[in-house]
Design a protein around this nucleic acid. Sequence first.
DNA 1: CATTAACATCGAAGATTGTCAATTTGAGTC
DNA 2: GACTCAAATTGACAATCTTCGATGTTAATG
Lengths: 131, 131
Amino acid sequence: MEIQELKEQKEGANSRGNDEACCVPTLVEPALGAKQARKAADVFNALADPTRLTILSLIARSERGEACVCDLTASFKMGQPSISHHLKILKDADLIQGDKRGKWVYYSLVVGRDEEIKGLLDTVLKIPVGV
Amino acid sequence: MEIQELKEQKEGANSRGNDEACCVPTLVEPALGAKQARKAADVFNALADPTRLTILSLIARSERGEACVCDLTASFKMGQPSISHHLKILKDADLIQGDKRGKWVYYSLVVGRDEEIKGLLDTVLKIPVGV
DNA sequence: CATTAACATCGAAGATTGTCAATTTGAGTC
DNA sequence: GACTCAAATTGACAATCTTCGATGTTAATG
């Protein structure tokens, strides 16, 4: 996920040289601008790891809807720094939030984030009706 | 996204040595097994790139719900092999399908895939009711 | 105030990814 | 069959990611 720039659409059509079109040259606008696409990709990137998905599901299904790092760490074979690393990625993507109480940090899901992500999916994958 | 193995949950509780619990030691089962988590991560990984998101939205919003590689390529600054590479990743994730007609290949969205992905999100992020 | 426990951060190793240039494949055309 | 064009594949390289070991930070405790 890096630099990504749409070619400036000159003269409103595609720039094929020949006169034989492969299809109706429908250069539609993408649903997302470059910046929005990058931001959406970041969210999906946070979800693009089995450990992080498992962490999320463990938090979602835990008793009070929250879990401390020590319990999460105890659930995996990998070390505590790795879990902390994944938690940071999830937090940066605004999928979870941490609450420090005493010596422990309790992580919980950000409410409503699932619906926001579904909205992102609709933006990208939904075929617009009656345009 | 690689090896990820849950620690075998021995004796039904967490393995903290001290008697002072950081929280109710609720070692719940994750919603996904290791294999399912890896598969789900692959899907989100396919979505975790701004170019690929833009490609998807271009296809979704194109006139007939399909777009040929040449038009997609014309929409980006990057080269044709890169677009082909991204299309392959989207195809491997079963997000799009290719249809070769004459010299051209037309890509379209796999119908219903959006709902399946939303189902994945629910599996991971939805807090179970009345357990 | 020294110690311990929980968690975060840092630095490095190894794997994976995105891009390009070059080449190959495959269909249509002369 | 030689040629052309669309698309896929290959190989290389830089950038990024995941993991680990070591260290730092902060809060409770003796």
